[in-house]
Amino acid sequence: MNAFIKPLAQTDDSVTISRADYDAMVALLADAEDIRDATAVAAKLVARETEAYPVEVMDRLLDGDHPVRVFRDHRGLTAQELAGRAGISRAYLSEVENRSKPGSLKAMTKLSAALNIPLDLLAPQ
């Protein structure tokens, strides 16, 4: 798109432009929205209001690994350490990570706090 858009037709209420100019304007708007969103995330990262996770964490989540196990490994915690921090038994943690028990809301809330992650990251997919 040129810096100058040539109207094909215009009235007091409307302007008609070419499809190419319209498509270019839509693409520029999408780019501007992406830049705005990226800037907002960058500001939250700097302010420590959010955290970025390595691609390996995201790959494991997408592969279906249990989020508690993924984030426990990411934080470098043993199962015993996490269970202690969360105030739950090691056996119960194992059942949650192995999906033999879903984990109560109370337990998942404790685990999210112990892992320092939002509870919604532990929610079932």
Rank of each mutant, 00 (worst) to 15 (best):
P102S: 05
D31M: 10
R48T: 03
A42Q: 15
R75W: 09
D34G: 05
E49P: 00
H74F: 12
D21Q: 00
V26C: 06
L62W: 14
A20M: 06
V57D: 08
S112P: 01
M58T: 15
V26M: 08
R85C: 07
Y92K: 06
A30Q: 13
L28G: 04
A38Y: 15
E81T: 07
A52F: 13
V70Y: 09
Y92H: 09
G84Y: 02
Q80Y: 13
A27R: 10
G64Q: 07
V46T: 05
L28D: 10
A113I: 09
R85V: 06
D31A: 09
K106E: 14
A107N: 06
Y22Q: 05
A43D: 13
K44Q: 14
R99L: 10
A107D: 05
G76I: 06
R69V: 02
V70C: 08
A83S: 10
R48Q: 09
Q80H: 13
A32S: 09
L29H: 08
H66R: 05
V68Q: 05
R60I: 11
P54N: 13
L45Y: 09
E49R: 07
E51P: 00
L82Y: 04
L82A: 04
S94W: 11
Q80S: 15
D23N: 00
T50F: 12
V26W: 03
A24E: 04
R19V: 00
L82C: 04
I35T: 12
A38N: 14
L82T: 02
D59K: 15
I88V: 08
E97V: 00
A83D: 06
A40F: 08
K106I: 03
E95H: 09
Y53V: 07
R85L: 14
L45G: 02
D31Q: 12
R85S: 14
G103D: 03
G84W: 05
E97I: 00
E81G: 07
D65W: 07
L62V: 11
R19D: 13
A107H: 04
R60S: 13
L29T: 01
D21L: 03
